[in-house]
Design a binder for these strands. Structure first.
Lengths: 226, 226
DNA sequence: AGCGTATCTGACGGCCCGTCAGGACGATGC
DNA sequence: GCATCGTCCTGACGGGCCGTCAGATACGCT
């Protein structure tokens, strides 16, 4: 309210500080540096081994400074996760709703979805890894992030499946939410473990095709063309 | 070798103690009590919050006693996981290899597999939860357990898929290992999160049918009967 | 330059972990 | 019954990391 605090570009929401104060220019700089360092370290260090003291040292500051901007390590990663979700959450759902699910073009839409998932998980692997881990561990904050990320896709797939069912195609007599849930679970889990598959000798191309074919057939009940 | 130690029923392997000694009757009793208490507490407490002191107190003993039988909490859970795997690892693979993959009987075999997975994950939910978590976290000990649990199923599905491919059915031109990997990932992940699905309003029956249909179609390329 | 405020930090108490020396218990021989 | 020995258990301790606070520092403004 009455937000006229100089040239402040009105960041998304309020980047609240530790003691309630609103951080200034320099404060936000160090805050960002801490975030960057945390993101960097996540690439090499397991999330459980990510200590506050290490992040602070990497950023050239002291642990106490960290706590001035984040209540704990998880909160910092949550910010990273929020940014990531904000940049790419709706693209998956769009790939589903924009799909005609007919013939070759329909199958290629499924292939595009699988490719997008694999690519997204490849790019944001470290953060997504933490989201999955913390969610499975029962942390509701990360669970919400995960829902935000996958909910649109889930709804889109459910709608597509139901649409096909009405046309006498797809999987008869099965709750479309179950269909969507299983497909989303498959897509997310396989994408998250692509590296593991490759280490096991399975190529990403084959994963992508397999997932695309399963998605296409499960939604439409039609054999993928060629 | 030369195992004639009275009425001792020759337990699997050597239940080694802390300081190298072989534990006696009473020692094994408390060891088992610690395991039982750990298993019990896993049902209510998150694996990360499972402290040694809590297990010891629950078992009516002291933390130091725990360390006499297990180097850490994870090792204790590993024993539980080993027992679980030993009791039910091959049943999944058998359900695949025994399947003819033809007609209604073939589809019912797939349904039986999905049902078995859901049931197994329901029974052993707490321990399997830890296995998944620790594996994702990079713990190689739990990763090995997980491989032992799913490897036979993976190989069986891969063999079945390849068999169908040779007969001109199934998914043409795709590595059967990728097919098996995706299916196993789906089965395991959905089974692990059945409770979450149900909380979301999705019935286990629909999950089972969806998974069974996907498995059957992916392996055979045939539409499930009825 | 001088002052007020935003920002940073060294140092501290608290919690949990894993270990060790020593005490309690139970079986065995007499 | 009781001495003795081996098995088993535990109270107490040092160490590491966490999160906080009062004080020091640096910047912006007049």
């Amino acid at each position: 309210m009455t937000a006229d605090q100089g040239t402040k570009p009105d960041e998304t929401e309020e980047p609240r500080a530790a003691d309630g104060r609103v951080p200034g220019r320099r404060g936000q700089a160090t805050r960002q540096k801490l975030l960057d360092c945390a993101a960097d370290m996540l690439r090499t260090t397991s999330y459980r081994d990510l200590k506050v003291v290490d992040i602070a040292r990497e950023a050239g500051t002291s642990p106490a400074t960290f706590y001035q901007y984040f209540p704990d390590v998880e909160s910092a990663i949550l910010v990273l996760a929020d940014e990531m979700v904000a940049t790419g959450t709706e693209q998956f759902a769009d790939l589903v709703t924009a799909n005609t699910w007919k013939g070759r073009a329909g199958y290629e839409g499924a292939e595009a979805l699988a490719a997008a998932m694999l690519s997204f998980w490849g790019q944001h692997q470290p953060v997504l890894r933490v989201i999955d881990l913390a969610t499975d561990e029962g942390d509701p904050r990360f669970a919400n992030i995960r829902i935000h990320l996958l909910n649109d896709l889930n709804n889109a797939l459910s709608a597509a499946a139901k649409e096909q069912q009405k046309a006498g195609k797809g999987q008869p007599g099965i709750d479309s939410e179950a269909i969507a849930g299983v497909l989303v679970a498959m897509l997310a889990h396989v994408s998250a473990h692509r590296l593991g598959f490759e280490l096991w000798g399975v190529r990403a191309d084959d994963l992508q095709s397999t997932m695309a074919r399963i998605v296409y057939w499960t939604v439409t009940g039609q054999k993928p063309p060629a």
